[in-house]
């Protein structure tokens, strides 16, 4: 860049330092340092507080424990069930909202309400919906002549139930997990709608109109023109949605009323929580949390590879 002089270069660096330091300093003190402590904790045994140094034993124990792998599998179903679906739903709704005229404000609020409704209240409604005795879900099934289900209590696989037992019960996500996934899609879509809509509003109008004049249909328009235009937002939501889902604790906790009964609904973060807080294995629980963090980092890096074609600079 030719207009840059040497002193400007250094001034720019100093400015960057000043602008970044509040955020990075806070993150360092309240996120990275505690994470370092958690990592150190994972190298010790004992219960509730530092026991003897055990090195990587906690990690070895985790990686050889069937419960851990079960939780990992559940986590995979959970993330794959929630993130793509809520991204698609969020984009579809946001695009629809973008195209309506009057009433958009009201509709937007309605779609955002799941995200602000207190999880406690929302979980009450969803549990009432899936209540095996009184719930609407079973009423619907009985209208179309299907046997009632146990929903949030059903540990057997949804594929097993759908195929009438052709597929083994421990393949695929359990019906209970699917209910939780539905809840989370509902909850997360509102978040996605709002962010997508903000991006759509910032999108140059000409882009859309030009394409429309070309005679492109709504769907083509959405996929060919609009989606690429909001790519940075898409990347953000994919990454943020995945992080949120992998760390999602409240929805499972409130939907199952804090009872860690079914391993089929236990994601890694929940497994770490139960080991750490409920059973008091601080070292082991921390180790699981560290593994989860590493997993999130790897997955995010992959997503960046795939989606971030941001401006190349320098």
């Amino acid at each position: 860049m030719s207009f840059r002089t040497v002193s400007e270069k250094y001034r720019e660096r100093a400015l960057a330092g000043v602008l970044l330091s509040p955020a990075l300093l806070l993150l360092f003190i309240f996120t990275y340092f505690p994470m370092f402590i958690a990592f150190r904790m994972s190298l010790y045994g004992g219960r509730r507080g530092p026991g003897p140094w055990v090195g990587l034993d906690n990690y070895r124990e985790a990686l050889t424990s069937p419960d851990f792998w079960m939780a990992l599998r559940v986590t995979a179903y959970y993330v794959l069930g929630i993130v793509p679906a809520s991204l698609a739903l969020g984009f579809a709704i946001a695009y629809g909202l973008h195209r309506v005229g009057p009433g958009r404000a009201l509709l937007r609020t309605c779609f955002f309400i799941p995200y602000i409704t207190s999880t406690v209240a929302a979980a009450m409604v969803w549990r009432a919906l899936f209540n095996p005795r009184y719930g609407v879900a079973n009423q619907l099934l009985s209208w179309i002549g299907l046997p009632p289900q146990r929903w949030l209590l059903e540990s057997r696989g949804v594929l097993f139930l759908l195929t009438g037992g052709w597929i083994p019960a421990d393949w695929g996500p359990s019906l209970a997990l699917c209910c939780i996934i539905l809840f989370d899609i509902w909850h997360l879509s509102g978040f996605m709608v709002v962010v997508f809509l903000a991006a759509l509003q910032a999108m140059p109008r000409e882009l859309e109109e030009a394409a429309r004049l070309d005679g492109a249909g709504s769907v083509t328009l959405a996929i060919r023109i609009v989606l690429p235009a909001v790519r940075p937002t898409l990347l953000f939501l994919a990454v943020a949605g995945m992080c949120k889902t992998l760390q999602s604790f409240n929805s499972i906790y409130t939907l199952t009323q804090g009872s860690t009964v079914l391993p089929e609904t236990q994601t890694l973060i929940y497994y770490a929580y139960a080991q750490f807080y409920e059973f008091g294995y601080w070292g082991y629980g921390s180790a699981v949390a560290v593994i989860l963090t590493v997993l999130i980092i790897v997955l995010t890096a992959l997503q960046f590879r795939m989606l971030d074609r941001g401006r190349s600079m320098s």
Binding site: L20, F30, I37, A38
Partner: peptide, 29 residues
Amino acid sequence: FLHFPGKKLAFMLAVGAMMVPFEAIFIPN
């Protein structure tokens, strides 16, 4: 918008912070 060395690292640190589960850093915090 700014050019400075370690930009990529700074970005990674900022984004990395959202990958740390709150449950893990709760007690140290």
